[in-house]
Amino acid sequence: MASEVTHISARCFWLLLGDEEMAVPFAEFPWLKKATIGQLSDVQRPSEDHLYWPQLDVDLSIESIREPAAFPLVSRSAGYWVRVR
């Protein structure tokens, strides 16, 4: 399953997942904001609805990118945000 970062700006980055391209806003995913281009670009798609950034040790459901309001940020512990459903 292919995944590719196609563009990075100050506010978000774009992921190409098959034939779907989606914006990933840093405001919704703050733990990705300080990542380098190399770290963001190193994204794996181990399953249909799962993305993994090994250099950042970040796992995300693709559904959480499509509908971030359904997965609100509820706490910040140990220096990172936790998103729960």
Rank of each mutant, 00 (worst) to 15 (best):
M1G: 11
A2Y: 09
A2L: 12
E4H: 12
T6M: 07
H7C: 09
I8E: 03
C12Y: 14
F13S: 03
W14L: 12
W14P: 00
L15Y: 03
L16C: 13
L17M: 13
D19T: 10
D19R: 11
D19F: 00
P25E: 14
F26I: 06
F26R: 02
E28N: 14
W31S: 06
L32T: 11
K34A: 10
T36A: 05
T36V: 04
T36R: 09
I37K: 12
I37L: 03
G38K: 06
Q39S: 08
L40Y: 03
E48V: 13
L51M: 08
P54M: 08
P54A: 08
P54L: 09
L56P: 02
L56Y: 06
V58W: 10
D59W: 10
L60C: 11
S61Y: 10
S61F: 11
I62P: 02
S64V: 12
I65D: 05
I65K: 08
R66P: 02
R66A: 12
E67H: 14
E67M: 07
P68Q: 06
P68M: 05
A69R: 09
A69V: 08
A70H: 08
A70Y: 04
A70R: 13
A70E: 10
F71S: 02
P72L: 00
S77A: 14
G79L: 02
R85S: 12
